[in-house]
Write a protein that binds this DNA or RNA. Structure first.
Ligand SMILES: [Zn+2]
Ligand SMILES: [Zn+2]
Ligand SMILES: [Zn+2]
Ligand SMILES: [Zn+2]
Lengths: 146, 146
DNA sequence: CTCCATAATGATAATGAATCTCATCTAATT
DNA sequence: AATTAGATGAGATTCATTATCATTATGGAG
């Protein structure tokens, strides 16, 4: 339910930080809407709801959410960071349509295992990875036929 | 040997473009030095060799090299693009040390096959992918023990 | 070799995402 | 209500990259 909201307040408090309307708004927005949002989009959505917030605060709040592992930061290669709420979904990677920008998610345990062995072979201790597949989604393939 | 240089001249000419000293210099620099160079590094190296070139021309030349598939553009997540000459090495992906910035390369055909099946399952026609593993390299792990 | 059209270059301004500054505001406790 | 330190907003700043445009130089024609 809204355990998520409670989570943020608890974390915020525990760290001696303050639970502000701006922080709550960004967190709710990231939870309730589609994932893979960029900062500008969050900023405009909240402004459109008459919530008083600045770009700087959007960025600062997201930074906190990422720090406390509630939000994942994505670099999809288009110059702006995207963010997705980590509640309610496990680790996944992304398929991105180069034509329409559609983003799909995939989970593949075999690849995850191979990543571990690649790291081991190269004497790396892994912390994270980026795995993104770019191409044409089904819709955009069909439009190519015209 | 220098078939590469000939390649560029041929491509340049074929497109009705002009083979300038700046374009040759950038291409030679990318061929002769370590891979994973950023534009600024190429700019300064060439200036250091008394080659007259501007940042804009470095970027413009790299754009051409990427367009004609001689150079691959990498986004390693640190805010600046890296470039690597595609001659003399097949497709590979990267391991990146988050502490010292070291970059290693890996080739894994099993992963490449899995990428194809993931794309097929999701009805995507793949064009390319980004696969980067981040962690601590061997040296940096040892320094952690201090 | 010289001329010429035009592609290419360089200096600089502009862009855009993200961060920083700092005066002002406000959450949270007393 | 007063207090205080953390949080905010407006605007400046940074940094990589791109755009502008006057000047330069390539490469083909003659
Ligand atoms: Zn599409
Ligand atoms: Zn996702
Ligand atoms: Zn290292
Ligand atoms: Zn490489």
């Amino acid at each position: 339910m809204n355990s998520a909201r409670i989570d943020l307040r608890a974390i915020i408090k525990q760290e001696g930080l303050r639970y502000t309307t701006q922080r709550e708004a960004v967190w709710r927005e990231l939870q309730s809407s589609d994932n893979h949002r960029d900062a500008e989009s969050i900023y405009f959505t909240l402004r459109g709801r008459s919530i008083n917030i600045s770009r700087a605060t959007v960025y600062r709040t997201i930074e906190i959410l990422v720090k406390y592992n509630l939000v994942r930061k994505l670099d999809l290669g288009d110059g702006r960071s995207r963010f997705e709420c980590k509640l309610g979904s496990g680790h996944h990677d992304h398929l991105i349509c180069t034509k329409c920008g559609r983003i799909d998610e995939f989970v593949n345990d075999d690849v995850e295992e191979l990543q571990k062995s690649i790291a081991a072979e190269n004497n790396y201790v892994l912390s994270n990875h980026i795995h993104q597949l770019f191409g044409l989604c089904e819709n955009c393939q069909n439009e190519e036929d015209k």
